[in-house]
Design a protein around this nucleic acid. Sequence first.
DNA 1: AATTTCTTGTGAAGCATTTCACATGAAAAA
DNA 2: TTTTTCATGTGAAATGCTTCACAAGAAATT
Lengths: 220, 220
Amino acid sequence: MSSEQPVKKRISESTIHRLSMYFRTLSLLQKEGYETVSSKELARREKLTPAQVRKDLSFFGSFGTRGLGYDVIELKAKIGEILGIDRVWKVAVVGIGNIGSALVSYKEFTRQGFKIVKLFDNDQRKIGSNHKGIVVSDIKNLEKEIKEDGIEMIILTVPATVAQYMVDDVVRAGVKAILNFAPINLKVPPDVYLRNENMSMELEYLSFAIRNNHTPKNMK
Amino acid sequence: MSSEQPVKKRISESTIHRLSMYFRTLSLLQKEGYETVSSKELARREKLTPAQVRKDLSFFGSFGTRGLGYDVIELKAKIGEILGIDRVWKVAVVGIGNIGSALVSYKEFTRQGFKIVKLFDNDQRKIGSNHKGIVVSDIKNLEKEIKEDGIEMIILTVPATVAQYMVDDVVRAGVKAILNFAPINLKVPPDVYLRNENMSMELEYLSFAIRNNHTPKNMK
DNA sequence: AATTTCTTGTGAAGCATTTCACATGAAAAA
DNA sequence: TTTTTCATGTGAAATGCTTCACAAGAAATT
Ligand SMILES: NC(=O)c1ccc[n+]([C@@H]2O[C@H](COP(=O)([O-])OP(=O)(O)OC[C@H]3O[C@@H](n4cnc5c(N)ncnc54)[C@H](O)[C@@H]3O)[C@@H](O)[C@H]2O)c1
Ligand SMILES: NC(=O)c1ccc[n+]([C@@H]2O[C@H](COP(=O)([O-])OP(=O)(O)OC[C@H]3O[C@@H](n4cnc5c(N)ncnc54)[C@H](O)[C@@H]3O)[C@@H](O)[C@H]2O)c1
């Protein structure tokens, strides 16, 4: 049974998000001392169906043993590979304000392979200051320092009014992935990946749910 | 043409998220001075199809004028009603650490109708301290103060290790909606709405995309 | 060694969501 | 007033995603 193959089919956003969930749960199972886990148990913990779990994995290969389930450590490693977190990604945070500086101290990112190595701001009072051992750089040196350090991902936490300019700058510096927190639709070239983190949207979902007595299938 | 009716069909998560997007874009259009907007233009700004926009709205009524489009102010008000943000929701933040205190100073929440009115922590050094004019309360008074203030939503920003206990407490206090930032699967009774904000997941999506040269349909 | 038990992997079926396509109706132009 | 233009609202088709159901294969039991 083949267990490795390049991704051919188009993988849905939901599948990728569930892979992240499986990964986290597998880490927990590992800590709890489990050696194997069935799709049934994995599904129970994520409130999914076992078929869903198996189907998600089947897009990438066959990693289980019939009658037994999946080896926890092995499956975790496989999913880590699929997600691309079997390596360290160098990340820079642009905009060291309220949310930016909170993210810098978030240890979970490092644990998942996202290492924040550079911070940028344009405020003279912030440039040179130290956050968790990292000195804030002047935004003027963005392109130079990103290239020097081989940074491939940006967390963007600047005001919405300047977010597009900053995106244009980091794209020019060769960055291929951006996680944006500003509540604005940004334009990026087709070869740059952009995700938006939008907390108001989640609060609005809750508001909608209460107002409409919504019974959702998938309150993820 | 009827323009108001209770929601009968099950509305998808995607539709609700898109309504949030439309709302934000309509605010922008209003600022830019537009009086009307077509589904085509709205779709262009959100990178969707015009049919998608019209279908989303059609679940809730018919708000447009054939040949002309939608009245910007009117549609914005309608979507605000649908989302339940035509009122003020009282929100409390539980856990005033890095991310919790960043959220307290986020003005966008207030603008969308989510008013943070109480902060809770269990750390003596934080209790009594002032964040944007709000004094941090002792977590011991959670139930009492939530009931007194009529708080209906909680933003939960405590360590994952204690998150479930805090959820149990706020549920006991009668809260019906929780936005959780801890990376853990929480259990809530069926009448309580829970949403999870998971930033690692978004970074992992980016990592997956780069690794697999992913060409997604909907990098939202 | 044979049988039972268990759980995977996967086509196919069942649902859900998105897109198409066009009748309908309102506004603008003639 | 009549005609043309434009864009909505919506069944129906197309596409996409989830669940079903079962053959197949591995381990455990007899
Ligand atoms: N605070 C929150 O909880 C929160 C939540 C969700 C989204 N957001 C969004 O995140 C972004 C930041 O929010 P915040 O509350 O941290 O704001 P903030 O004002 O505290 O931080 C913004 C930072 O960006 C810096 N900055 C401004 N222009 C810059 C430039 N051209 N180059 C580099 N740095 C620049 C500022 O000096 C500041 O340090 C905003 O777009 C906001 O809407 C914030
Ligand atoms: N910092 C980030 O950028 C970030 C990003 C995503 C998710 N998160 C998650 O958000 C949560 C908070 O992260 P943080 O970095 O702000 O951590 P933090 O340690 O800075 O803040 C946690 C706060 O919760 C308080 N607390 C602890 N136990 C409590 C209790 N029983 N009752 C009330 N308050 C209590 C602590 O006193 C502290 O003020 C964590 O679960 C973390 O995984 C954080």
